[in-house]
């Protein structure tokens, strides 16, 4: 298989793009795709400081590498969740530290157990929260918003790619969760000064392409799966979508792009009366958590502070 640009040996074929590329031109293509996404969706500007949420996995470390190569000002944040199975959180933190040290990049680590008194599995074992992944998501969102606000970052960049987004879209569409459908997109605007703007610069890359980039770049990422995500619903939906993709290349991207474009041009409008699905649209819709000071849609403690009994210090 030959590179469509130089005729050299291709390392990857992308049927959905009708494109085969060698190592050099593949890297250039990835950088171009991400830069296009950043500009097309007005994610951020060169002078902005960007907080990159890194897990130690292929997507987030690859994203950090790409943004750095594109010349953006980035700092990383790693949230140590306290997952001890096969030293998952420790190993992941080590990968992030090693990556940052090799490139001279700044980052910070927030250890959930050291900061709030309990790890995510310990917190879940107390019976608070419905599902561990939901608790984990809530904790991570709270911490990232806090770090972004305190550090004055323009936005938080995450490593979500097409497969992540298409799987979420399929799940939400199958259950007609219109509030979630209304919120999904490559840019989640800030609706309150203490709720960070969130961007997904890998929104034009397939998960396979993101992994190939990390491997080509020699990034040492965590290959093991989060032990709590092994049977995650999102993996099941990704497998279903990959079966469709094999029959009809490009379907995953068309599915996701259809949502993004439909919302942008007004053809798709979603509304939900469910409080947990429909976000407030402006700062006046929020109340302030009396404990942590972060905005909340209900009165009293926010959902994060209600997880801890008594509330964390």
């Amino acid at each position: 298989m030959k590179c469509d640009i130089c005729g050299g040996l291709a390392i990857i074929g992308m049927p959905q793009n009708r494109l085969n590329l060698c190592e050099e031109h593949y890297q250039a293509w990835v950088l171009k795709m991400v830069q296009r996404a950043i500009e097309h969706h007005h994610m951020f500007m060169p002078q902005d400081r960007i907080l990159v949420a890194v897990s130690g996995g292929k997507d987030s470390l690859g994203l950090w590498d790409i943004l750095t190569r594109l010349g953006y000002q980035t700092e990383g944040v790693y949230i140590h969740l306290g997952i001890t199975h096969e030293d998952y959180s420790d190993v992941s933190q080590h990968k992030v530290e090693q990556f940052a040290a090799e490139r001279g990049l700044a980052y910070q680590v927030v250890n959930v157990r050291q900061t709030y008194g309990q790890s995510i599995p310990e917190l879940k074992s107390t019976g608070r929260g419905k599902h561990l992944c939901a608790v984990c998501g809530l904790v991570k969102r709270h911490i990232m918003n806090r770090i972004a606000y305190e550090g004055g970052y323009a936005c938080i960049a995450t490593g979500h790619q097409v497969d992540d987004e298409a799987a979420i879209l399929l799940q939400n569409a199958l259950h007609w969760q219109s509030g979630y459908l209304g919120r999904q997109g490559p840019v989640l605007p800030s609706t309150h000064p203490r709720l960070a703007r969130k961007v997904k610069p890998l929104c034009r890359l397939y998960e396979r392409e993101s992994a190939a980039y990390a491997l080509v770049r020699g990034i040492d990422f965590v290959e093991q799966e989060c032990p709590y995500a092994v049977r995650a619903t999102s993996i099941f939906y990704k497998q279903i979508l990959n079966q469709i993709e094999a029959r009809s290349p490009g379907t995953k991207r068309q599915f996701y792009d259809g949502l993004v474009e439909g919302k942008a041009n007004g053809e798709l409008v979603f509304h939900s009366d469910k409080v947990d699905e429909e976000p407030a649209l402006n700062a006046q819709d929020y109340q302030t958590c009396p404990h942590c000071g972060q905005p909340t849609l209900g009165s009293g403690l926010c959902a994060f502070c209600r997880l801890w009994e008594p509330p964390h210090e």
């Binding site: 990857i12 997507d59 998960e207 190939a212 080509v216 799966e225 989060c226 995500a229």
Partner: peptide, 24 residues
């Protein structure tokens, strides 16, 4: 090194497959 799917395997080659699907 990443290799394309049409590459012919030679005797003694070791082909490592890296999983690309993650959940969460």
């Amino acid at each position: 090194k990443v290799v394309n799917e049409q590459t012919l395997l030679q005797a003694g080659d070791e082909l490592k497959l890296v999983n690309v699907i993650s959940g969460g």
